[in-house]
Nucleic acid binder design. Sequence first.
DNA 1: GCCAACGTTGGC
DNA 2: GCCAACGTTGGC
Length: 163
Amino acid sequence: MSGSTKYWLLKSEPDCFSIDDLAREKNKTTCWDGVRNYQARNYIRDDMHKGDKVLFYHSSTNPPGVAGVAKIVKDPYPDFTAFDPKDKHFDPKSRQESPRWFMVDIKLEKKLKRFVSLDELRKIKSLEGMVLLQKGSRLSVQPVTQQQFEIVCQLADKPAPAE
DNA sequence: GCCAACGTTGGC
DNA sequence: GCCAACGTTGGC
C-alpha cells in the first residue's frame, strides 16, 4: 500500500441521488458514475484511492450543504455508463480499449447528525480556503484537506448556530 | 427562473 | 491556436 488517506467532496443533486438514496443501496454502496468533466475525471482517475474519505454534498437544493460522510471502497475504474448508447451519460468517444471517464465506488459511513449548510460553512474562518467556497467554483469533485474535513464533521456534532 | 462563471465546440 | 457561440452548473 502506498500514499495516505485523501479527502474529497462529492456533489450530488438530492432530487437525482440523495444521501438517503445512498443509505438504501445494497451495502450502502454505489458507483459514482456520470462525471463528465476533465478536471473532475483527473482527480478521480489519478488521485483517488480506496480508503479515501468523502464529504457527501447536496447541490441545487435549498439549502445546499454537506449531508454525510462516505468512504471510497473501490479504486478508480472505467465508467461503463460511457459505453452504453442507451445511457444518459453515453459518450461515443470513450472506448473500451482507452476509456475516457472513470469512477469509484463509495459507501456511506454516516449521515451527519445534522445537515451543515453552505451558508454556515461560509461563516467559518478556518474553512475559507475550501474549494467549495471559492467564487465560481462548480466542480462536482473537489479535494478537501484533512483539517477541512474534520472541521465540517465537528460542526455537525454541535448544535446549529443561532441566526 | 435568472444569470455569473466556467467549460466545450467548431469555424477560421 | 484564437475566440465567438453555445451549453452547463448551481447559488440565489
